[in-house]
């Protein structure tokens, strides 16, 4: 089982590299049970989007 720390690492890496099926399953299992990580996942996507928007906001 992944813990939250490992899960956030994987969530972050999924923005950088293809994630294996095994990893994807493990993340899904964890996310189903963990509200903190579900929030983190959404916030990660938002930060990614916001950082890309920044050049237009300068």
């Amino acid at each position: 089982m992944l813990d939250c720390k490992q899960n956030t690492e994987l969530l972050s890496q999924s923005l950088e590299r293809p994630i294996t099926l095994r990893e994807r399953m493990a993340m899904r299992m964890h996310l189903m049970m963990c509200r903190g990580c579900r929030n983190f996942e959404k916030q990660l996507a938002f930060i990614h989007k916001a950082a890309r928007e920044l050049p237009r906001k300068l």
Binding site: D3, C4, C34, C37, N39, Q43
Partner: peptide, 15 residues
């Protein structure tokens, strides 16, 4: 130490 959030992220309103 067990790898769980010390303070789990809460929802962000209207990002």
């Amino acid at each position: 130490e067990n790898g769980h959030w010390a303070d789990p992220p809460q929802t962000w309103a209207n990002p």
